[in-house]
Design a protein around this nucleic acid. Structure first.
Lengths: 195, 195
DNA sequence: TCTGAAATCCTAACGGTTAGTGTTACGGTC
DNA sequence: GACCGTAACACTAACCGTTAGGATTTCAGA
């Protein structure tokens, strides 16, 4: 027991990172579908079973930062200034996420994702998880009077905003446009005012 | 060319139906994951390749009415009374769909779907398609002044309403609750009024 | 009846994923 | 420093969904 201190963890993290880096490099070089798992494992110099002990699926190799994403959304709710309303905080975070995904370096990756049905599908199911965890965070927000259904609804809408904005011609403007709609929906779900 | 008249089409439809029925029966009897494609094909007395010429994937065997669903949503927009506003028409249709899915006989099927990650994921990606086609229908609605982004957003929200309502304790009430939020979002997206 | 095409079949494989079973390398303990 | 439990990793062999390739049957129309 106790805290596993040091080398072991570092080696494990290094292995994981090497696999992820190798996979992404190969995928970008030759296309996601054209590179097999056995090949990624060989190039990263690990066994196939080791690869799958670090990543649950081939698609997960691409969405390595999945968990960061999920955490950031929830933290945008829980860690905001005490007097800041919910939605502006979420809007800021979504803005940041969209900016991060449409940055220069990220373009080839998203191009690859859009080119592979398997990756698109996987991303969709990721978003479902993100919406659920965001809904939980919103529902736990103090001084809130909306129903559970309303919280889950708004969480979905926020995730939708992220997904739609990324595909829009002007992502940043789209975020603002969609959030105006979400604010209206949120208002109407409030028995009293005060968000 | 001309219209392929009769027997051929009937036989094909019969084969398709037999495969779907057999698959659903086996899945419900022994669990989705516990029944293999080869087994379904054998029990339906067709070749595996034939099965896959009727259904694109194992999951598609379960969501046989996929296309109906998609068509009904689009038609709710295009076939509504000339003076009926958009959202009430969609609300009616979503009500009908939710009622259909929460009907008595359908319970075991949805239970099975919720128990299989593969099926949940597939359903998610179906919804994406449905949202896209609904967005197209909404965007094509005459006398409409919203932006493309707003149309796609509302389409997503409507699909979300369906998904969320089905999981709610009181599905019918949830539909109404969520649609109140969607109406507000739609209003705010209108440069002028008049839906 | 003949012909073209659609529907079906068979075989064999490919690629992601997992189970089963060792084998190493590390961390804490004596 | 020797020792043991365990976490990380490796190897093999398979399972399962899916597809390519190509043969064969069955129907609609000329």
């Amino acid at each position: 027991m106790t805290v596993p201190s040091g080398r072991r963890e570092r080696k494990k993290a290094a292995t994981r990172q090497k696999i992820a880096d190798t996979a992404l490099r190969l995928f970008l070089e030759r296309g996601y579908d054209a590179v097999g798992i056995r090949e990624v494992a060989a190039e990263a110099d690990v066994a196939v079973t080791t690869l799958f002990s670090h990543f649950a699926s081939k698609e997960a190799l691409v969405f390595e930062q999945d968990q960061d994403f999920e955490r950031r959304l929830a933290q945008a709710v829980t860690d905001r200034a005490p007097d800041e309303p919910l939605l502006p905080a979420l809007r800021r975070e979504v803005h940041a996420l969209v900016r991060h995904c449409t940055a220069d370096g990220a373009a080839p990756i998203w191009h690859m994702i859009e080119g592979s049905p398997a990756l698109r599908e996987y991303e969709e199911s990721m978003r479902l998880r993100h919406a659920e965890s965001l809904a939980t965070a919103i529902a736990a927000d103090p001084g809130r009077s909306q129903t559970t259904t309303a919280c889950r609804t708004i969480a979905r809408f926020v995730i939708d905003a992220y997904a739609l904005a990324r595909e829009a011609a002007e992502p940043e403007a789209a975020v603002d446009e969609i959030f105006r709609m979400i604010e209206a929906a949120w208002e109407v779900a409030s028995p009293s005012r005060r968000t």
